[in-house]
Design a protein around this nucleic acid. Structure first.
Length: 359
DNA sequence: AACGCGGGGTA
DNA sequence: TACCCAGCGTT
């Protein structure tokens, strides 16, 4: 595209955005801290899922200082169900860095932004363009999908190198007058019209420029390689109650999958294949025996990269055996005080529906 | 450069 | 069912 075509492209794109673009809570503010929160929540997460979390989060932590001073568990509680929990931890770390190193204000240059925990190339560019009107293209899945179609770019978007190519292209393209609107317009286009599996090209403000539309190959783009076969893991979930009917729960390790969240004890059935090994394991750790619940209950929980197949077992523990750190006895009506992954929220539901007899 | 990291929406 | 989503940190 020459300079004149770029200008026209921007005009058509921005004109559409100003009339048809989405109205979203984080577009109502200029507060870089709020915009930052929204950007972190929106990483790999769809807009409609984020909206209620965003509203609750900024009302619970209205200032950087409020978030910086909050206990991590409370931050995780506000993130419960949103997934990718390290985002919450990194966001709080990053906000603490901002409070300590930048006088509580978000820096307005790329280098400093990238040095903050949880801010990568995309989020830095988003903040610079949305909060500070800098012409930085925010390279995300939407932008790559839209531009790969418009310009018929067949590089593999799962490769790091390809990101650089889109960055160069978008840098030439981005509207100097309204860089933030340019980025948001491509996001809205990607979400509303130029979708992955179903396009709506006749509604698209730039279909006249689109090489893929011209050739009728929109759905062939973007090119993306590498699918992974997901592993399946079998676990027993142990419902261990003390003399008062309280349940034993444990906090997961600080690193790794679902870090810092709480769960009912789990025993790998792949690791301990024999019945006697399993009995020894439970006896050693929890001082009791377990058996399948009266009406057997198993279900699968699917993550993006693995599958848990969970089976409920129950047993009677005792408060006489001292608890280890990161364990506690919890009454049925106190589960809500702890962040649980969705896979274990299902178990809480099961308990509430199937065990109204004890507490 | 490759991998780990959640949960929900969509076709 | 099989992707896909306003990515980032670690290795």
């Amino acid at each position: 595209m020459d300079a004149q075509q770029i200008k026209q492209f921007n005009h058509d794109l921005l004109d559409w955005f100003h009339t048809k673009g989405r109205q979203l809570p984080w577009r109502e503010t200029n507060n870089p801290y709020y915009i930052w929160i929204s950007e972190v929540m929106l990483q790999q997460t769809q807009v409609n899922t984020v909206i209620p979390y965003y509203n609750h989060f900024i009302s619970r932590f209205p200032t950087p200082e409020a978030l910086a001073n909050a206990p991590e568990q409370e931050v995780l509680k506000c993130w419960e169900g949103l997934g990718y929990y390290s985002r919450a931890r990194n966001l709080q770390h990053g906000v603490r860095e901002m409070v300590e190193n930048y006088d509580g204000r978000l820096p307005d240059n790329k280098g400093d932004l990238l040095s903050i925990t949880g801010i990568g190339p995309y989020t830095a560019a988003a903040l610079l363009s949305f909060a500070y009107d800098e012409p930085e293209p925010a390279i995300d899945g939407n932008l790559m999908r839209v531009l790969s179609r418009v310009f018929l770019i067949d590089d593999d978007i799962s490769k790091q190198k390809t990101r650089k190519k889109f960055e160069n292209l978008a840098s030439d393209l981005i509207a100097r007058t309204e860089p933030g609107a340019f980025n948001q317009a491509l996001m809205d286009l990607g979400a509303m019209t130029c979708r992955p599996k179903k396009t709506d090209c006749l509604q698209c403000p730039v279909h006249a420029y689109c090489l893929a539309y011209d050739e009728g190959v929109q759905l062939e783009y973007p090119v993306k390689s590498g699918k992974v076969k997901l592993r399946s893991l079998n676990y027993a979930v142990l419902l261990i109650q003390d003399e008062q009917g309280r349940y034993l729960i444990e906090q997961r390790p600080e690193k790794g999958l679902l870090a810092g969240l709480w769960q009912f004890p789990m025993m790998s059935l792949d690791e301990y294949e024999e019945q006697s090994q399993r009995a020894d394991y439970v006896r050693d750790r929890y001082g009791c025996a377990v058996a399948p619940v009266r009406k057997p209950f198993s279900y699968t929980h699917r993550f993006s990269h693995l599958i848990w197949r969970l089976t409920l077992l129950e047993g009677r523990g005792t408060t006489k055996k001292p608890l280890k750190t990161r364990q506690c006895w919890t009454a049925k009506d106190e589960f809500e005080r702890y962040p649980f992954p969705v896979s274990h929220q299902k178990i809480i539901e099961w308990i509430k529906n199937n065990r109204q007899d004890h507490t």
